[in-house]
């Protein structure tokens, strides 16, 4: 065997031995136990401290408030949404007190009007809605109520009702357009209310010769809209003029 090969062989074997030895020493203990990672990392991540205690923790001490909230419109809103992370408070209830936001700026984070919010979600214009008065003056944050308690159609069709309430059709009762049999309340899917089935129905108010207040937009019922029923293009619960 040529001299070069033996010499190089020695050098390479030495390097390989050093590599393997160093590697044995340096690979972390728990590496590869569960997968191609340090199993101990999972434990240290799992051991990180909590900031948000979770609503169950609050309920243990603040039972009356929790019960009130649990049957209110805020039943799905957990305590720490408004009061902030409270794990420290749970650990030391006497010394650490979570904040309770009372200023007007806070509630509009959810309830301020924003066009991108789902229609039907209760929203107000923070500037025009009872200026300067803290929200708590009229609404109990643990059991907030809208001005009208849902009932009748609204009890089930809340989203439509809220939407209609801010539309040009706000003052029209549902039964103006829908004929709902009483049995609909008992078996809503088998006995459905009807919808206007002719263009003339909307024409009662919107036709050019209709006897209705003059601010109501008018169309020529016989030619407008190429024979579609009105509600196939317009949404009567929130009609737009365009």
């Amino acid at each position: 065997m040529p001299q070069q090969v033996t010499r190089l062989g020695i050098a390479f074997v030495a390097l390989a031995v050093v590599f393997v030895a160093v590697r044995q020493k340096l690979v972390p203990d728990t590496f590869g136990e569960a997968g191609h990672y340090r199993a101990a990392a999972v434990d240290s991540i799992a051991a990180q401290p909590l900031q948000y205690a979770g609503h169950e923790a609050c309920t243990m001490c603040h039972r009356p408030i929790a019960e009130k909230r649990s049957v209110s419109n805020h039943s799905g809103v957990s305590c720490e949404v408004c009061h902030g992370p409270a794990a420290e408070h749970v650990a030391a209830p006497g010394s650490v007190k979570p904040p309770a936001p009372r200023e007007r700026g806070f509630c509009p984070l959810c309830h301020g009007y924003n066009a991108s919010r789902p229609s039907g979600f209760p929203q107000i214009d923070p500037v025009a809605h009872n200026p300067m008065v803290p929200c708590m003056t009229c609404h109990d944050p643990h059991a907030p109520e809208p001005p009208v308690i849902p009932g009748a159609c609204r009890a089930c069709h809340g989203q439509i009702a809220s939407q209609k309430a801010v539309s040009h059709h706000a003052t029209l009762p549902c039964l103006t357009c829908h004929d709902a049999p009483d049995e609909h309340k008992a078996s809503p899917r088998t006995l459905r209310p009807d919808k206007p089935s002719s263009r003339d129905f909307c024409g009662t108010c919107h036709a050019e010769d209709a006897i209705s207040p003059s601010h109501i937009p008018r169309v020529d019922v016989s030619t407008h809209g190429e024979g579609y029923l009105c509600w196939q293009c317009h949404y009567p619960h929130h009609p737009e003029a365009e």
């Binding site: 040529p2 001299q3 070069q4 033996t6 010499r7 190089l8 020695i10 050098a11």
Partner: peptide, 14 residues
């Protein structure tokens, strides 16, 4: 690396 052989054979191998 201590490989100092400069014979023709070694150089041919190189």
């Amino acid at each position: 690396l201590g490989s100092t052989d400069l014979s023709d054979r070694a150089l041919r191998f190189d």
